[in-house]
């Protein structure tokens, strides 16, 4: 299969994939079928974008990896999820965070009545390390998100959307993760704030070796920062490729960047993609 990303970062892990989601099916409430066999890989040190319209199943995919599904009465009914060679689909979120996989939820979900700094400190809950080490992590987060430092003693509920998004990412970084599942960081934010946040994500990726799986509706921005991308539609991956290729692909442009002439159609109506898909499978 021609699915493994071929970016430089992935060559090292070509033998053993880092995070791999294999043909996963997810059902909510025992009846609502949402993911119909999703497969994707994230290489070590990569930034992979998971794109698609509202309701496509991006958040569900991330939650199936972080196992936050259980709390929403969702279940992985088929397929498997591996991280660093071990099955992780039966683990609790607590286990997963300890193993280095953490999700930043859509809508930020800061603890509104806690201060920014208290929010960050809760991120280190699963770590059993010295105070000094946690202080070092806190300083690290403050160097990346300098805005948070100035707001450190404000109640998170009263900070701006951008600051809350930074707080949510910073809180996850406090867990000292290897792999961050980042759900719609751009949602509802002004373009320059989005840019600022993505720059920091890129920095965390290159300097702290944190890998990212990034769910986004904002295709254009996501593809500029990611190495590889998957496009999800109705619970299926309908297209995948190098971020640069996707960004220049005519269909992606037409359907997701709003550059085409007609309104948005479904990818499945596109003939040549169908051909490609047949060839893939």
């Amino acid at each position: 299969m021609n699915t493994a990303p071929t970016s430089a970062a992935s060559t090292a892990s070509a033998t053993a994939p880092y995070l791999s989601v294999n043909n996963v099916e997810v059902i909510y409430d025992h009846v609502i079928l949402v993911l119909k066999g999703v497969s994707l890989q994230v290489p070590k040190g990569g930034i992979v974008a998971l794109l698609g319209a509202n309701g496509a199943g991006k958040s569900t995919t991330l939650k199936s990896i972080s196992n936050l599904l259980r709390a929403e009465r969702g279940d992985v009914t088929k397929g498997s999820i591996d991280f660093k060679g071990a099955r992780i689909d039966q683990m609790t979120p607590n286990d997963l965070v300890k193993r280095g996989v953490i999700q930043v939820m859509e809508g930020r979900h800061c603890f509104g009545h806690l201060t920014i700094e208290e929010n960050l400190l809760t991120g280190a809950y699963t770590r059993s390390c010295s105070r000094a080490e946690i202080k070092r992590s806190l300083d690290l987060v403050y160097t990346y998100f300098s805005r948070l430092k100035t707001r450190r003693s404000s109640q998170a509920g009263y900070t701006s959307g951008g600051e809350q998004q930074m707080c949510a990412i910073g809180r996850a970084i406090m867990a000292n993760p290897e792999m961050v599942l980042l759900d719609e960081p751009s949602m509802g934010l002004a373009p320059q704030i989005v840019e600022e946040i993505f720059e920091i994500v890129k920095d965390l990726n290159s300097k702290e070796q944190v890998s990212f799986l990034l769910a986004e509706q904002n295709t254009m921005v996501a593809l500029r920062y990611a190495d590889f991308g998957y496009i999800l539609e109705n619970g299926r991956i309908v297209m995948e490729g190098e971020a640069k290729e996707l960004a220049t692909n005519e269909d992606v442009k037409e359907f997701y960047l709003g550059l085409g002439g007609e309104g948005r159609k479904s990818f499945r109506e596109v003939k040549h993609y169908r051909r490609r898909k047949r060839w893939l499978s």
Binding site: A71, V97, H109, F111, G112, H113, L114
Partner: peptide, 18 residues
Amino acid sequence: RALRAVADDHQAALSIGI
């Protein structure tokens, strides 16, 4: 702190491994 976090938003608390 974890108690207060859970009180504020138990989903978010779950997501960071509490």
